[in-house]
Design a protein around this nucleic acid. Sequence first.
DNA 1: AATTTCACG
DNA 2: ACGTACGTGAAATTA
Length: 402
Amino acid sequence: MEMPLIPVLAGMETEGVALDPNALVEFSAQLEKEITVVEAAVYEAAGMKFNISSPKQLGEVFFDILKIDPKAKKTKTGQYATGEDILSKLADKHPAVQMVLEYRGLVKLKNTYVDTLPSMIKPRTGRIHTSYQQAVAATGRLSSNNPNLQNIPIRTERGKEVRKAFVARNANYILVSADYSQIELRIIAEFSKDESMLNAFRHGIDIHTSTASKVYNVPLDQVTSEMRRNAKMVNFGIIYGISAFGLSQRLNIPRKEAATIIENYFREFPTIKSYMDGSIESARKNGYVETILGRKRYLRDINSANAVVRGFAERNAINAPIQGSAADMIKVAMINIHQTLVDLNLKSKMILQVHDELVFDVAIEELEIIKPIIREKMVNAIQMKVPIEVEIGAGKNWLEAH
DNA sequence: AATTTCACG
DNA sequence: ACGTACGTGAAATTA
């Protein structure tokens, strides 16, 4: 699988993706103005000037001078921790806190994406060419660098502006995005053979709502948005190798409550529990875990006497077969799609991969031919009992295609 | 070169 | 008491 993937990735790298630089030049100027305003507001609120981008200076201003939090947490090097998770909980303690979060968001977007991406357009092609690494991620995922096109913003309104700048090659083309739906949870359902999870997928029931219905013991139509939100976090936790501490951090609740939620979960999904225990047991016995196509991840710390170190290995034992099997599946799909595009002599090209998503630069007259091909190859990449679903969209830019 | 933070799945 | 959700890459600051 990895060897035939090489020419496919090479083709994607060579092809590149078009960026509309004008959109970003304008956006950059707008961000610059907003940054200037927020910066001045921070200085005013804090009563002094300092480098807001320096975590060290920021921590000293917030916690030594303004004394925003008497129990301020430190990082392992003794500096004050000022990450988003910390500051968002202190937002009501001092007006400068929210302003700093705003400043961070604006500066990140401008420096990492808006000002950088246009400079990476290759003059010879007029396009952006990422590089895909096949032998970096321990789970078998690809990674992307120089530039990384697997972490382009999408979650915030301003972030969406960056996505809009990724466009089709010309007016005769359109971007098509194809996403696996809940692929990692479907793989857990397949591996564990959990009947209620399989059932939810077979009947097209929203998986987080289904989980909430079980854990909170209410009918599907009485699941509240808060119950669903919590269940979603639990489902993510399952994928990552859940811990009461981790869930309590995500949900911002006491560890005891998180532990109760997890207990309820495993009571309703005992086969998931035994599947996860089986992954750890297999790692202990063999020294590795493997994906559906046999990719191994060795876990030398699985029998460590240090509980923290061992805990990492155990969560890796749970996560690696899931994340890695999803990577196997999309890689097979990529090989088969590429081969079909070549066989049918189509002009359209596969240009990006973002873990569970493929993006294509499609000649408009080929749109209706290519969509069922993409879907069929993605759905049938690896035969499974659980239904696999793919969402496909098209638009003049990456945001619209999503 | 290491640390911290934050963008994505 | 310890110290944790999985996988990445990049920018700015600090050492």
